[in-house]
Simulated scan of single mutants.
Amino acid sequence: MRAISHEPPDYSCPFCRLQRGEVNEHNQPSDVVAVTDRAFARVAPKWWPGNPGAVLVVPRAHVENLYAISPEDGHAVWDLTQRVAVAMRDTYGCDGTSTRQHNEPAGNQDVWHLHVHVFPRFTDDRLYQRHEEPRWVTASERAEHADRLRAALALPVTFA
């Protein structure tokens, strides 16, 4: 399948900007909980009710979607996704985790850089029934969750 790009020509990728040290209220260095050679994980700036502390796992290379990712970057993202899910389960006291990844506008993709959502799940949290209810959270709200995951993951957190 030939990948079709939906990324605008002048797109300023928030994940690439974060790796370059360009920050704003939604992208802070303190959000980053792990960095590997090919992927990184950061606490998400948008949370759904009942699922605080969700994480995004992102390939370091700019790749728009699942259709275009290399096997090496795909494996790195999935390996880090698993580590994040285990750390989340251990540190948040959640009942489980869920992952999801979106491709193209019809697939609900709205950031044109592949990323995997890792959600803490709690009994009866209704995550999938609350799609329209997310809110942007402050860096200070994200910090507690990031600190706990960073300690549990014990991986580098800087983009070298």
Rank of each mutant, 00 (worst) to 15 (best):
Arg2Leu: 15
Arg2Thr: 14
His6Asp: 05
Asp10Thr: 14
Tyr11Ala: 01
Ser12Asn: 06
Pro14Val: 08
Phe15Trp: 01
Arg17His: 06
Glu25Leu: 08
Pro29Ser: 07
Pro29Met: 03
Ser30Glu: 11
Val32Met: 03
Thr36Glu: 00
Ala39Val: 15
Phe40Ala: 04
Arg42Ala: 15
Lys46Ser: 09
Trp48Asp: 02
Pro49Ile: 13
Asn51Trp: 03
Gly53Gln: 05
Ala54Cys: 14
Leu56Met: 10
Leu56Asn: 05
Leu56Pro: 01
Val57Glu: 01
Val58Ala: 08
Pro59His: 08
Ala61Cys: 05
Val63His: 02
Glu64Asn: 08
Ala68Ser: 15
Pro71His: 12
Glu72Leu: 15
Glu72Ile: 15
Asp73Arg: 09
Gly74Leu: 03
Trp78Asn: 11
Asp79Gln: 13
Asp79Pro: 08
Leu80Ala: 08
Arg83Thr: 10
Ala85Glu: 09
Arg89Asp: 08
Asp90Met: 15
Thr91Arg: 09
Tyr92Gly: 09
Tyr92Glu: 05
Cys94Tyr: 03
Thr97Tyr: 11
Ser98Glu: 09
His102Pro: 01
Asn103Pro: 02
Glu104Ala: 15
Asn108Ser: 10
Val111Gln: 00
Val111Leu: 09
His115Phe: 06
Val118Cys: 03
Val118Leu: 02
Pro120Val: 06
Phe122Val: 07
Asp125Ala: 06
Leu127Gly: 05
Gln129Asn: 05
His131Ile: 14
His131Tyr: 14
Glu132Val: 14
Glu132Pro: 01
Pro134Val: 08
Arg135Lys: 14
Arg135Gln: 07
Val137Asp: 00
Ser140Leu: 13
Ala143Ser: 10
Ala146Ile: 13
Arg150Val: 12
Ala152Ile: 12
Leu153Asp: 02
Leu153Tyr: 04
Ala154Arg: 10
Pro156Asp: 08
Phe159Ile: 07
Ala160Asp: 10
